[in-house]
Design a protein around this nucleic acid. Structure first.
Lengths: 346, 346
DNA sequence: GGGGGGATTGAGAGCGCTCTCACGTCATGG
DNA sequence: CCATGACGTGAGAGCGCTCTCAATCCCCCC
């Protein structure tokens, strides 16, 4: 029913067509409360007849709402996409936002100049709120810019910069990385492994650090010494190299906890290359439970986190900050559980 | 230098601060042409002092430009993210857009209702153009809505709906799937394989269809019969099942071309389960050259496509449509090459 | 039958910005 | 010395929408 071509119809045009005022059309378009049903139907008919769609710029000029939320990822896209962690989280976010008819705006913060660009964008009022993934923990990245612009922010993953822990207004969603690390190593201990190595991620990320801490917790609880640990940089190649060095440095090693499935896959490559059997000679536990983890040979024991749910929760926290979600209590950070999935590699 | 808190400063405020008119400030903010350098500097100083950032809603209300481009993916996010094809393409797109200071707006079109939502969003003038991935080929998905709203659209992948081929205005970027399929199978033939099976993707996607056609081309060129082909749905499980059926139905099978690496990984699982060696008993070629392809055991021969470049090209085509990129010739579809990467699985 | 009150509706004032035009103000050339 | 531009600047008209506020209408009850 769209009268196509020509300039898009405005409220004014619809009003004229329906024989009412602009205000009335506006009311109908925005829910139609307080308009006689007869008039409402007439206006709706005109809207359809003309193919009217509200101009969002005009609308948000006056409402100061954009109906969009930015997801800022301060991480190279390569990492983001090679790591299903983000994808799943994004899916959760996107689902949650879609339900509220909010748009998701994805922004990558990769190179130096990007920061200024993104910052400018956020300040320009394109979005109502920000979900931020900033994994490298040095300093509050764009938090400043966003907050200055009065935008509510929710972080994905526990922020690691100094003072973050002390900031009561800081909102984030994280998984229980420490608990996950603890479970992984406790499991290896249960299986009777004696010398357990850890392949960690970059320790400037709280997730990497927490998993290592969890591993230490488990060993400490069993009265064992802290494990030898090497950084595998969360990549397959890093895992490969770290495994090699661990084997060289710890001759009796009979188990390894790799803090990501990617690193575990690299580690298994090294083990295979050296003729070591998994799990007979060396047991391997990963982290993440990516899909490929189950294809590995042997299928990988790993730690699963409900990442999609984390995404949803992030979105929900933001919505509460935006006060779209009426809720009495002021929101606070959320940590979701991690769960060991036992397969054949351990 | 930002005077924070309080309402954000407007042009008016900057004008007052600098002692000039709103128009002059606007000129300075938008490039500063035609303003005496002395005045320009004064205005710039005021902008800094007040921390002025233009209100994008107000701006695009009058300019009818938003500075944003939507990427619409008519595919479940699960698929999108499990398939690095998209991620890389997105990276290319995002890079290209970032260089032009355009924002990327990612939208998934997953469930039934999403279509209306996205369509509404596009019509609402939130974006200047659309990059659309619509793989299932039945009908022009949102093309209608976008075009009706006067938005330029570039498709990722050759659209497959009836009449698409005939539409001269249709802009898309694709890889040479047919050529890739041809290379894969030609390679297997060169290796002396006699009975080659194909595990295809869903044939309602042009990419899947083209790869199969390519395989047929290669066999036809060698004077061989068309290959047995089964749909593996572009998933690892599908590949597993398809491989099993192929083995059952084609006893002498000594090679398989799986039209995606995921399916190849599934196929290899089946082969391993049946005690068949790769490549001694059955050679395997995949498609995509995902990172995990090289971790496989043995590392997977596959077909690589420069996906990131495809993304960049898509973005560039759109920019030309938007006339941001001055260019004499009217843009036309682009097909990028595919390249066989030989590893140990064949 | 008249008054009160709630439900509808319309008029109009902006939201913050861009852009056209008209209005100086100088430097130039006849 | 004045017409002629070129250049710089400001005034003001919207862009399309929301929202307040006042006007109007209708219905009910005394």
């Amino acid at each position: 029913m769209h009268r196509s071509r020509g300039p898009r119809p405005t409220l004014e045009a619809v009003a004229a067509h329906a024989g009412v005022s602009r205000a009335t059309v506006s009311r109908v378009v925005n829910g139609g409360a307080g308009v006689r049903s007869e008039v409402r139907e007439r206006v709706r008919a005109s809207v359809d007849a003309l193919g009217y769609v509200p101009n969002s710029a005009a609308r948000s000029l006056v409402t100061r709402r954009t109906g969009a939320v930015a997801v800022v990822i301060a991480e190279p896209e390569s990492r983001v996409f090679s790591d299903p962690f983000f994808s799943r989280q994004l899916r959760g976010i996107s689902r949650e936002l879609a339900e509220r008819d909010l748009q998701l705006l994805l922004m990558f913060l990769e190179e130096r100049g990007d920061s200024a660009r993104v910052s400018r964008y956020l300040s320009a009022g394109h979005v109502d709120g920000v979900l931020m993934f900033s994994l490298h923990g040095e300093e509050p990245p764009l938090g400043g810019a966003a907050e200055e612009a009065g935008l509510p922010v929710v972080f994905g993953g526990r922020p690691g910069w100094p003072g973050a822990a002390a900031d009561p207004g800081l909102l984030y969603v994280d998984t229980d990385n420490r608990g996950g690390g603890r479970q992984a190593v406790a499991h290896l201990l249960e299986r009777g492994r004696q010398r357990i190595g850890v392949i960690t991620g970059p320790l400037d990320q709280t997730s990497a650090l927490d998993r290592l801490e969890g591993a230490r917790d488990a060993l400490a609880a069993a009265g064992a010494a802290p494990p030898p640990a090497l950084d595998g940089r969360f990549t397959a190649e890093g895992g490969e190299r770290a495994m090699a060095r661990l084997l060289d440095e710890e001759p009796g090693l009979d188990a390894v906890f790799a803090c990501s499935d990617l690193m575990a896959s690299g580690a298994m490559r090294t083990l295979r290359a050296r003729g070591l059997r998994v799990p007979a000679d060396v047991a391997v536990v990963g982290y993440d439970d990516l899909e490929p983890a189950s294809w590995a040979d042997p299928p990988l024991t790993t730690v699963r986190q409900d990442v999609e749910r984390m995404g949803r929760i992030m979105a929900r926290l933001l919505l509460r900050r935006l006060a779209l979600e009426p809720d009495e209590a002021s929101p606070s950070p959320v940590v979701t559980p991690a769960q060991l999935v036992i397969r054949q590699s351990s």
